[in-house]
Design a protein around this nucleic acid. Structure first.
Lengths: 252, 252
DNA sequence: GGAATAGTGTCTGTCAGACAGTATCGC
DNA sequence: GCGATACTGTCTGACAGACACTATTCC
């Protein structure tokens, strides 16, 4: 691989974020409105340039904190922040009309946030149900009250890939707890699965599965009635990161 | 995301390839000897710069053809070439001592090739058992007859990630057939799984599993005795790409 | 015949799906 | 009481693991 350092073609490198959460029984993604051209006024994924002496993951974490105030912890760990992992890299020659830009997309799974806290240099930000953005697919409860508009650049494709990664990853890992607050009930965790997959799960079988998997859930001793009905036990995420055997996703 | 195009930090973008095959009951990776500094004389993964008007995947396919003569088909399709998919992107600030280089690694699964056909600008190339490169891990039959030496740059880490991806992906997809010639027997496919996972599988249960999964294998009608013993049926890869339920990997 | 590989059949334990039934809250 | 949710228990069918056994080839 001998080469002349001055002869390589110039690239810009950005990070884009697919930030997912579950709000009101629906899987939602964070989108920001673009303040300048190209695609001015269109919705896009949050993101920005990687700095000259910055790791890719550090750039993603910095953008996440700027946009949401969330502090990720990158792998393992308890449920005090958001989960962040690299998703894929998008580098088609003309995906950005101004110059050659390679974007390293990252996936963030976050618990529901009280306020959409727009920040950074974005004019505005909101949580959009993924069904309203990708059109097809099991978004289901898309009610048409918000304008449906495709995302800027190739961000629609990036979002689809991120949603698909999240859907498959909660099958064989305990990552669904990243969508939950630090303490949660079995029913709340089940509604996360139902929102992400867009299906209904049997509450009894789900309860047996998650409480029977060692290391998945740790009871905190407390109870809550915030969902109504009989008081439910509260749990924290356990240390187990891989689910074996996996949670089975119906209708595949 | 307003920004000044002239203000972005300059990056070089490369593709690196983790090319895996199964030779003599061992999982092997293609490595090339570096002809120039840095890391002159050390083994490295094949790869090169992305051209100014070239897609990332096209760059990976071009490097693959230059190094091995293989023509990938990127997704789906029959078994006439190699499987190619994006793996992950590596961009630590000083991973290349000369400049800021972001490498988009790709994973290639190829059938056993008669000749290691070095090509391109690499001085020499060879198939190295992955156990001899990553040291630890279930490489098992590393016999010490070849020098054990860590790969240049962060290529050891990239190789580990690629091997891990391949190991997990053959669990729930029919991708193991990408390691096989166009026509193969159940026993040959089983030896692929055994080599990649580094375990022994029960031939009877394996046979029942793969022949009982619809769409996985298609009998061609022919038979062969190239492995000795009773003639075995020949199969082609079927159209099924996802295995449900997955092949279970022992000892997890 | 002996060794090697291919292929079939049977038993058993585990577990997911389906569903009955009970417990405890708010109204 | 009524509706909601939480939780326990039982039955059944699918399937993986662990064998025994037979078939066909080369030597």
């Amino acid at each position: 691989m001998p080469y002349d350092p001055s002869a390589y073609p110039p690239f810009a490198v950005t990070v884009d974020l697919v930030v997912l959460t579950v709000r009101k029984h629906a899987l939602c993604a964070l989108v920001v409105r673009r303040g300048g051209p190209p695609f001015q006024g269109r919705w896009a994924l949050p993101g920005g340039f990687v700095r000259g002496d910055e790791d890719l993951e550090a750039a993603a974490a910095r953008e996440l904190t700027e946009e949401t105030g969330l502090r990720p912890h990158v792998s393992g760990g308890q449920n005090a922040g958001a989960h962040l992992e690299q998703l894929a890299t998008y580098g088609a020659p003309r995906r950005d009309p101004r110059m050659r830009v390679v974007s390293v997309a990252h996936l963030v799974l976050a618990p529901d946030l009280p306020s959409p806290t727009p920040g950074g240099d974005a004019r505005s930000a909101r949580w959009a149900p993924v069904g309203s953005l990708s059109g097809t697919d099991s978004g289901a409860e898309w009610d048409g009250t918000e304008q449906q508009e495709s995302l800027a650049f190739d961000h629609g494709e990036i979002l689809r890939d991120g949603v698909e990664r999240a859907r498959s990853k909660i099958e064989y890992s305990s990552l669904a707890t990243a969508f939950c607050p630090p303490e949660f009930t079995v029913g709340e965790l089940r509604r996360v699965y139902e929102a992400v997959w867009g299906v209904a799960l049997d509450p009894r079988n789900f309860h047996r599965k998650v409480t029977g998997t060692p290391g998945f859930l740790v009871p905190t001793g407390g109870t809550t009635t915030r969902q109504g009905g009989r008081p439910a036990q509260l749990f924290r995420a356990g240390g187990a990161t891989l689910l074996n055997p996996p949670m089975l996703r119906p209708e595949v």
